[in-house]
Amino acid sequence: MKLIKQLSIVGMLLLLTCIAQAQNFTIQGTIEHPQPTKAVLLKVFDAQTMQYKWQQNIDVAKNGSFQVTLPFTEMNLYQLNVYGKKGRIAVEQPEKIQVAVKGKEKLQMKITGSTGNQNMRAFHKYLNQLQGKHFGGLKERAMKAVKENNTKEMAALEVIKNEKMKGFEADLKQFIEGLGVSAAAYYAIGFMDLNIHLDFFKKVGERFKQKYPKHNLTRALWKDIKGAERTAIGAVAPNFTLIDVNGQKQSLTAYRGKYVVVEFWASWCLGCRIEYPKLKKIYATYKSQGLEILGVSDDRQTKQWKAAVTRDQLPWPNLWIGQNKVRKDYNISNLPFNLLLDKQGRIIAKKLTPEQLEVKLKELMKNGR
């Protein structure tokens, strides 16, 4: 009887140990060329700031090994910083994650043992396959057309791109749905344009909310969704005041009383440049009827922005985002991106191709709105 009690106690202890271990996750790493005086930095994604915030420093042993064990409370994204080399880790369950850092001047980081990272790698592989399947060869043709200023070819490529985009996005949505409610799914959906696919984001967001209503990634996803609703159809476009090419400040509200196309672009955006020939024709036709186009450049430097305005001979007012909060207010993630505003500044359409814009303008002018 005494032996049975002892065995029972041992069994309980083993069970408790297993339970305790099951609630932790461990990150173990090796660095080929360690710098023992420098710690490895671990950050965790925070829904409040939508950024990675510092969690702790991890000491590195002389042989280059390091390890940290943390409580697993919910799935989340972490960032590991090894001497400036950053790696994202998706923690979806209690598991042991291995990190190998090789190289001296140019570091390479390999992360294994994480189910989430495995799914993120699968996503990137599939994304590359999709790009080849739907857009293979188009980029080279577009670069050649822009270089030669072949407006006919640009117009043809714009039609092809818009048609192929439908299949690309449908395939991408299907893959993301297959990831279920996971850190990898949250990561993957970030590659889609929230402004265009708000309904899909809400669909995924509802699944997150049902399964993990209070989790960090659920709150982050819905924070993005609520932000996108500020620029939904029918909403008044957030005002902004930016500088033009002459250094003068211009505000969006100053254009009330006109139909306004807010066209977000950048000097490096090939898709933007392909649209310019048709946009110029539309501008020439409808400017006298109350249309204005406001180009808003997302270039990081004014030099590239101003050079592009001159190079492409853009006839409409052009503004520069700079460090303004416009990116956040309008959820700018992909270029080109545009919004059509009515005379009161309300959003009546988004992400229009030049062909769609012309159809919409004809309708508006015909109805005298």
Rank of each mutant, 00 (worst) to 15 (best):
R369H: 12
L279G: 02
T253R: 14
K164T: 05
V101T: 00
R327V: 05
Y259I: 07
Q93C: 10
W305L: 08
V159N: 10
Y283M: 11
K214S: 15
K144T: 14
F135I: 14
L107P: 02
M75G: 07
R207C: 05
Y276R: 09
P238F: 05
M12Q: 07
T302N: 01
L341Y: 10
Y186L: 13
K2D: 09
Y255L: 11
Y276Q: 13
W265T: 02
K281Q: 15
Y259E: 01
H197Y: 13
G247S: 09
N239D: 15
Y255V: 05
L279S: 01
Q55A: 03
N57I: 01
I9G: 05
I27Q: 01
L107M: 10
E363N: 05
K203S: 09
F168E: 02
P315Q: 06
Q51N: 15
G180L: 01
I111E: 00
R346V: 03
F337S: 11
K161E: 12
M165G: 03
T30A: 07
Y255Q: 08
M109K: 13
V309M: 09
D193P: 02
G290E: 01
Q118D: 15
W316G: 03
M75P: 09
D342K: 13
Q67R: 15
T353I: 05
E363F: 05
R300T: 15
T353N: 03
T112D: 13
A20N: 06
Q356S: 10
E169P: 06
W320M: 00
V82G: 04
F123N: 01
F175V: 03
N162E: 14
L314P: 01
G87M: 06
T17H: 08
I225T: 03
E158P: 00
I97P: 00
N338P: 00
G345V: 02
S267H: 05
G29W: 03
G132E: 12
T302A: 03
L127W: 05
Q301K: 13
V261C: 02
F240L: 03
M50L: 11
Q250E: 14
Y283S: 08
S182H: 00
A184I: 06
G103W: 07
F123A: 04
R141C: 09
W305D: 01
V44W: 06
N76H: 10
E169N: 14
K328G: 13
G234W: 08
F45N: 04
T253S: 14
W222H: 08
N334D: 12
Q48T: 09
V60T: 07
R256G: 02
I233S: 04
R88I: 14
V101D: 00
D244M: 08
M165R: 08
N216G: 06
A22P: 04
I243V: 15
F66V: 02
D299T: 07
L70R: 06
K306P: 04
N324Y: 04
Q174V: 04
Q356Y: 07
Q323T: 09
A100H: 12
Q56S: 14
E95C: 03
L314C: 02
M143H: 06
G84I: 10
G136E: 10
F191Y: 12
L357Q: 04
S288I: 07
E363R: 10
D312P: 00
A155C: 05
G64H: 13
W316R: 02
Q21G: 10
K139F: 08
G116Q: 09
A237D: 10
N128I: 06
Q93E: 15
A156W: 00
A188V: 08
P315I: 08
P71I: 13
L252I: 07
E206Q: 15
L279F: 08
E263A: 07
L352M: 08
